[in-house]
């Protein structure tokens, strides 16, 4: 027997209290969202070092059979880099890049953003 009218049932539904969530739910939601510490970004130096190691490994593996050739190539590269003129230019280049990176106004991103305004 359906003795309740539609309005009575609607009123009953409207008066039904919501379920009470567990006490720790609120804190665990916030811990998993707004309070979650983002993962540490990879240091550029670290990324460069890993990239260099990977490149060396990729280059080295096909030459494993010719170990003397590899040693000779590394020795030649080291000798070339050890030339005073090369060392001076490398030092100047690294110093210039480092100085430029510390200047607050010198950023291609900032320049492009301003140009676009």
């Amino acid at each position: 027997m359906n003795d309740r009218t539609d309005d009575e049932l609607d009123r009953l539904l409207a008066s039904l209290p919501l379920e009470e969530p567990p006490a720790e739910l609120h804190a665990s939601i916030l811990a998993a969202t707004v309070e979650r510490v983002p993962a540490e970004p990879i240091d550029p130096w670290e990324a460069s070092a890993w990239g260099l190691l990977l490149a060396l490994a990729v280059w080295f593996v096909p030459h494993l059979s010719d170990i003397n050739g590899v040693i000779a190539t590394i020795a030649r590269a080291a000798f070339t880099l050890a030339q005073p003129a090369i060392l001076i230019w490398l030092t100047v280049g690294v110093a210039a890049a480092f100085t430029a990176s510390t200047l607050p106004e010198f950023s291609p991103g900032i320049y492009l953003a301003r140009k676009g305004r």
Partner: peptide, 17 residues
């Protein structure tokens, strides 16, 4: 983050229900 905290407070019970 307070914006999302308020949204959690507002909808937590309804979603749990």
């Amino acid at each position: 983050p307070s914006g999302f905290t308020t949204l959690v407070e507002r909808y937590e019970r309804s979603l749990y229900t």
